[in-house]
Design a protein around this nucleic acid. Sequence first.
DNA 1: CTGAAAGCGCTTACAG
DNA 2: CTGAAAGCGCTTACAG
Lengths: 340, 340
Amino acid sequence: MVTIGDVARVAGVSRSTASYALSGKRSISPEVREKVEEAVRSLGYTPNAGAKALATSQTKVIGLLARFLEDEFAPAMLQYILGVTNQARERGYDTLLLTDEDGVAALKRISNSRMVDGFILLNVAENDDRLDILRQAPQPGSLVGLPGDPTGIDAFDLDFVAAGRLMVETLHELGHRSLILVSQPEHVLERGGAYVWRLANAAEQRAAELGIELHHHFGSSSQPEIGRELEQLLDEHPSATGLLLNNEAAAAALPNVLHSRGLTAPADISVIGRYSDDFARTFSLPYSAIDSAADDLGRRAVERLISRIDGTVDAATTVVDLLAPRIDDRGSTAVPPSRH
Amino acid sequence: MVTIGDVARVAGVSRSTASYALSGKRSISPEVREKVEEAVRSLGYTPNAGAKALATSQTKVIGLLARFLEDEFAPAMLQYILGVTNQARERGYDTLLLTDEDGVAALKRISNSRMVDGFILLNVAENDDRLDILRQAPQPGSLVGLPGDPTGIDAFDLDFVAAGRLMVETLHELGHRSLILVSQPEHVLERGGAYVWRLANAAEQRAAELGIELHHHFGSSSQPEIGRELEQLLDEHPSATGLLLNNEAAAAALPNVLHSRGLTAPADISVIGRYSDDFARTFSLPYSAIDSAADDLGRRAVERLISRIDGTVDAATTVVDLLAPRIDDRGSTAVPPSRH
DNA sequence: CTGAAAGCGCTTACAG
DNA sequence: CTGAAAGCGCTTACAG
């Protein structure tokens, strides 16, 4: 392989000069710089990553800890992953993708071996056992998802409290007085998906403040169960004019359910979902929805992580960045139908 | 950080002895081995990956070159990625995920920097510009997807020729004599998705051999266009009793199309798709389909790659492994309805 | 503005 | 069965 020694020889300088010419860490005469650069081009030189890492203690790699949970809409994860890898690359970092079942072990292993400069944790749970390891690690980390205790670690998530309120307020303002909220299954919550109750609690509280009805239901995450549950909910609450969906499977099932009942949105019922724009496109869902902003969150987490790696950020100050929810209007909300 | 020097000191041996005790590359007295292992445990020692890579020229990392194309069903990619990362991990490798727009540049960069021991290329096109770079690279590679010229590189793919034949034969045997095949858009083909015509050509040829009708159509990859196209195809070919779908969007749109026409599968029309089992589950598609076997293909590619890295395989012999298609029976095929 | 040398943390011939 | 030493390819004080 071609080394910096080869470059130095071809350029007729010492290895240190070649190194400095490339890093720009000390001033180099233009002629020498040109000779070095020419040598690099002609030889096709690229620094050996391992040697560089050993010498600098910087790998220019970030570790991405994904966590694939049953009953979760796996494809959604891809958007987070792409946000992270693309932003990392733009900033000169590559991404080591860790999909180990045992996230704690993976974190320990990679951290100890100094394979990466920092970590991004995806799908962070309310009580995530990876956080303690991360706090001990010599490398910094950024979370995508808000844990119960984010002390000492930067965290990025959608503001699910604001999302719950926004959904209710939007329909209330249009005149709706009875709503149904379909959440993800309770076991998502049990294994740490606190965002589910954050949204639901906020929605219920806001509905109470506004003096309107909100029927909350934990739905299944699979077909055809969720379809049947939706049917049943609509049967049970005939006066409900608005449907809030914090459940991807429910959103995917709804078109058929409405169709079979001869209902259309928003003429007969208003609908607001909470899922990614990408999901909406894939399933061609015609419902207004609060975007998960997966790509954006992944990018923010990386941006902050790199600032921390670079030390361009106060080490003692940690941020919790909750993205304000925004409804992508697809025209599925309107004033409720007048009852005759 | 804790180094092998620390381990050696605590164990009361030399660094080389500590190293050999851990690698097992020469015989070590049981007592010494035990002392070293104890030191490793108490210190929580893990070798520095960069130093190890520098000394051994082995990184224990494989590079995964993903390629995200417009209009392709991105979530499907996740299954390949998971197959690769999981299999790699089982064999002691980590995975560097490369999502660079410019795959050629990424390949050069990573190869030259010696960050990985080998490459997996996903979504390989008929005329993939990454292949020449890979052939020059010092690291071996495995392809997922069959290019026009796989010379010198191991390739893994579903056997799309067999898949096309199988779809036609299956319905022919049930008594169908007029079929519709919906492929992915032509531009998928133009940018190198040769599997589209491989399947279509094989299906057409087999239909001709069997003396039955096959209407071939390149469908859109998005809603609601593909839904309208399906409507039109059914209108144009009222005598068709079988529908073959090599187009994910078409499969996702079909339930609504059939429903709106008052048709059910397989009573009125038989359907066979070609998409991943995961896709079927996500969209709860009730159609029998040839699985993409993404996970399996990813795993095979990794397995072969690692054998090549380890040199446990004849360096001069290259394989093209085409997975035999298999229909996951979801009950959407039957004898054609009798016409009165 | 440039060079010779030490050091990063490993592995592995070489010597005993 | 074990140890002292060289070397992997970089970077970066140190010295001029």
